[in-house]
Design a protein around this nucleic acid. Structure first.
Lengths: 114, 114
DNA sequence: CAGAATCCTTTACGATACTG
DNA sequence: CAGTATCGTAAAGGATTCTG
């Protein structure tokens, strides 16, 4: 199973934050957007330090919420590609805004991302 | 003490989400923005179900992160007002966009907020 | 390669009572 | 009114091992 239900959202802001909150969701969406399409292993290498469990779990939640598409190729070795849905793409301009906002204020933390 | 350090953000997106994540931050920012200025008790009544502990803790984190101003009047009974900083105001278009996005997709949950 | 399974730790959050 | 303090629960996240 993917995850416990979040507590019911009490408003749209709340609802939205529940979908894209969590430790990795913002980054995952941003990375997939940056590369248009990413395989599981590529994501794994991009999100430094994430465990396979968390990556899978987070991707499933995003899929369940209609934010990412999961495409499985029937090959050996296996190949799975992740892309953003149209719904998720609507979020990009403002995740970008958020990124700039964060960038301006990060100061010390200057580990590069993306 | 207000809170444990979040794990170090690894990029600007991450950094930003850490500042405005959590169960109540989005809503608190949104409410203060809607009313321009809110007292502690008014916030308490707006954020239905929040405990004083969580409200205080969340407000302190927002203050520490430079997102809200806390103004204390030296009166009896006490009076404390919260407003958004310029930095937080930059986030409003983003949160508004997010709110619209959430609103479009909420479906069932139609408890009104604001 | 792309994960699933299991177990465990940490952190967020909640209930309740009290105070200047 | 605007908080603190203490204690407890639940959810999020991590480590490690295994598999089709």
């Amino acid at each position: 199973m993917t995850k416990k239900l979040n507590s019911d959202p009490v408003c749209a802001v709340d609802y939205a934050f529940q979908r894209i909150g969590g430790k990795y969701k913002g980054r995952i969406i941003w990375y997939i957007h940056s590369f248009t399409v990413l395989r599981y292993g590529e994501l794994k290498r991009s999100i430094v330090g994430i465990t396979p469990k968390m990556l899978t779990q987070t991707l499933r939640e995003l899929e369940d919420d209609g934010l990412v598409n999961r495409r499985v190729y029937n090959e050996v070795p296996p190949k799975v590609e992740y892309t953003l849905t149209e719904s998720a793409k609507e979020l990009i301009p403002f995740i970008d805004h958020l990124r700039e906002w964060g960038d301006k204020r990060m100061g010390n933390y200057k580990i590069i991302c993306q």
